[in-house]
């Protein structure tokens, strides 16, 4: 290919990528700039990239209208249980799936696929009834319980694929030395799939952090607000003060974005085999 054609091609590709990045980031950027507008002013009449008199007063209003600090703390506590528990149970089930064969494999794989096909919305109602009978509504237990099944069947699948890629001789050798399942998991399997663990941890955090419907169904009272519920409460206050609502949205979004930026290197990397499927 002659150099000018190649130059044209690569620069048009760069332009296309630039436009795409702008399109995908635009909603988040305007959410942030919109939150900087001082509340109480009449709505803007035209497009404004940086609002006049930009400041953080909307954030102060957000925190006084709703107990956001307490809600953030609750969400962090729930995530602190959710994430490690999801990683452990998902990697256990994933290792079992990767190592089993015959009817055991069929049972496990069938369960994972079936779970993947049940819409979360389909079990709300009856699951609520189960927890009510157990006397656990009003406690955080129903929120954390899904971590016992790996958080999401997707996480189990990700681990199973990653473990399948490890050389089987590793496991056979350790087994000959008398290592049991838990030791195989802890000292061989888990240390070799760090990128997968990072991805699953991030996704489990995002799942736990964004959870809106479970806290809405199971928790009540001001002390039991989680971050998404606090934002919902802010909305229900009937605030037409968009800067305040947007500031609340930024507060709820920021931890998830920071967690993602910390972990993205692990699953957006360039190497073959990198990604969620780990190595």
């Amino acid at each position: 290919m002659p150099p000018p054609v190649r130059l044209l091609r690569s620069s048009s590709r760069a332009l296309l990528i630039g436009v795409l990045v702008a399109v995908f980031l635009a909603p988040l950027v305007v959410m942030f700039t919109g939150s900087l507008r001082p509340p109480g002013l009449p709505p803007p009449r035209g497009v404004e990239l940086i609002p006049q008199g930009a400041g953080l007063s909307a954030y102060a209003a957000t925190f006084t209208l709703v107990p956001f600090g307490r809600a953030l703390l609750n969400s962090v506590l729930i995530a602190a249980f959710m994430v490690p528990l999801s990683v452990v149970t998902a990697s256990w089930a994933g290792l079992a799936l990767a190592q089993s064969s015959g009817w055991r494999w069929r049972t496990l794989a069938g369960t994972v696929l079936l779970l993947e096909m049940v819409p979360g919305t389909a079990v709300w109602l009856a699951r609520f009834a189960v927890f009510k009978v157990l006397g656990l509504t009003g406690t955080p237990v129903p929120l954390v319980a899904p971590a016992l099944m790996g958080g999401s069947p997707l996480f189990v699948l990700l681990y199973a694929v990653a473990f399948r890629r490890l050389p089987p001789e590793l496991f056979e050798a350790a087994r000959l030395e008398g290592a049991g399942p838990v030791r195989l998991w802890r000292s061989i399997a888990l240390p070799l799939v760090r990128p997968t663990t990072a991805s699953v941890a991030l996704l489990a955090f995002a799942l736990s952090w964004r959870n809106f419907i479970d806290p809405l169904l199971y928790l009540s009272g001001e002390d039991a607000l989680t971050a998404p519920l606090a934002l919902h409460a802010l909305e229900l206050l009937g605030s037409t003060q968009w800067p305040v609502l947007l500031a609340g949205a930024v507060v709820v979004t920021l931890p998830a974005v920071l967690a993602f930026l910390g972990a993205q290197r692990m699953f957006l990397g360039e190497e073959r085999g990198s990604g969620w499927l780990g190595r």
Binding site: T89, A93, L97, R104, L148, V156, W185
Partner: peptide, 28 residues
């Protein structure tokens, strides 16, 4: 010991799936 024992690692997952999805589905 051996490969069959690995299934035990899936026990928490299977139990939780039965309690959180299987039982509610039947109840529904």
């Amino acid at each position: 010991r051996g490969r069959e024992a690995m299934l035990w690692l899936a026990a928490p997952f299977l139990a939780a799936a039965a309690l959180l999805v299987g039982l509610p589905a039947l109840l529904a």
